[in-house]
Design a binder for these strands. Sequence first.
DNA 1: GTCTTCGCTTGATGCATGTCAATCGCTCTT
DNA 2: AAGAGCGATTGACATGCATCAAGCGAAGAC
Lengths: 241, 241
Amino acid sequence: MRPQQRQSVRSLPLFHRVSEAHFAELMDTALLQRFPEGVTIIQEGDLPDFLHIVVGGMVELFARHDGHETTLDIIEPGSTFILAAVVRDETYLKSARTLTSTQLLMIPAGVVRSIFGKDAAFARAIVEELAERYRCVVRALKNEKLRTSAQRLANWVLQEGARQGNRHEVTLKIDKRTLASRLGMTPENLSRNLGLLARHGLSIQGPRFIIDDAAALRIYARPNALIDDIAEPERIMARSA
Amino acid sequence: MRPQQRQSVRSLPLFHRVSEAHFAELMDTALLQRFPEGVTIIQEGDLPDFLHIVVGGMVELFARHDGHETTLDIIEPGSTFILAAVVRDETYLKSARTLTSTQLLMIPAGVVRSIFGKDAAFARAIVEELAERYRCVVRALKNEKLRTSAQRLANWVLQEGARQGNRHEVTLKIDKRTLASRLGMTPENLSRNLGLLARHGLSIQGPRFIIDDAAALRIYARPNALIDDIAEPERIMARSA
DNA sequence: GTCTTCGCTTGATGCATGTCAATCGCTCTT
DNA sequence: AAGAGCGATTGACATGCATCAAGCGAAGAC
């Protein structure tokens, strides 16, 4: 691994406070690997070999059952996946495949468990990451059970607008069919729902969604801090102080 | 707290390997409290004061949004709730209320975080519990996205049959309306689905479900080890060896 | 330039599920 | 014993969403 990459991994929340010796131990056994688009990285039902950390690119987590498939999450740089399976040494509940060319850092599961026992800062970071992932799934479950597919879409647009910085335009970085699966609907219904949102302040230009009337869209979407992952500026500032 | 209760708490996986001094520290600040049926223990949106451990009874975790309410989980003795919120010191995503008279052990959130940093065995137990809870939510999300409500019911009956020991009869310990909410359907649809399952090997006698033809029910339910929480006898034996 | 491909869209239809309303049957009162 | 209350059931209906099938349009092949 090149020094610069090592440094950028070091700055991730998961490793930031780990002792230099333990970090070196983790990195010595870790593999940094690049995968092309559309490759299946792990298969549900298998046992975990490595903890995976996304360094660059995008990974889709999905599951199949009885001829159907659904997207459970899309992982972006800085985040881990299958941490829970590694911690418990139990089978994966999800499969993972790359949505783009992707760079992954892979740390052997046994090494993760070993350093967890030796380094309190690492243990703390692991449990914080796991708790964060837990909260994401709970939000997803509430989103699924308490909203219609059109409302999920409307909230996704608002959230993505905030995340991309420019709050009035959202550019789609993934396939519409992947977005549909992520939002728990068919591609056909995504199309129809986009048409529906035209009456609530959104206009569509191919892969670009323009928020003409944020207030109207928000009225339709009914965003909720306990479902949508909205940054809470006050609390973030309080924490870093 | 009486010595006998203390001993039964000590034997929970969460505390089993914690040092005696740290366990004493946890118990000195903990409250053991009894709540009657139907009491709201925590409210979504609040900040965590205590980690809650169910010692006796049943607790329902639920969430509300836009005039609707859904059950997210039902917690039984030995398990914790709102662990993720305590770990991250962030607002609850779920509310909790008692379904029966319930005894709860409540440990101040700050004490949990403090012992987590000092006791590696406790840290390990916390992360295992959190990972287990994580996996439960992932299963719930898959259950919700990949199955019809009737299939969810059929699998619940099979699972509950196995859990209750007698695999051919299941006795309902909660309201049918609570079961309906837990399985993500209305009480009306639970009724109809129970009627439907009569054609697939199940007969209903009030709060007692009798599995006449387990094979037929299993064909309809299509159980899946990666959705349903099925014990895996081989692996459990391998682990304890 | 034309053809093919593939993702997206649009329309028609059916199943899954929620909603509203009426009724049943049990338990608890009084 | 009659009535109130409440959970469970049943029926009628509306809506959400998936499915199937056809059409559209832009990017790439030749």
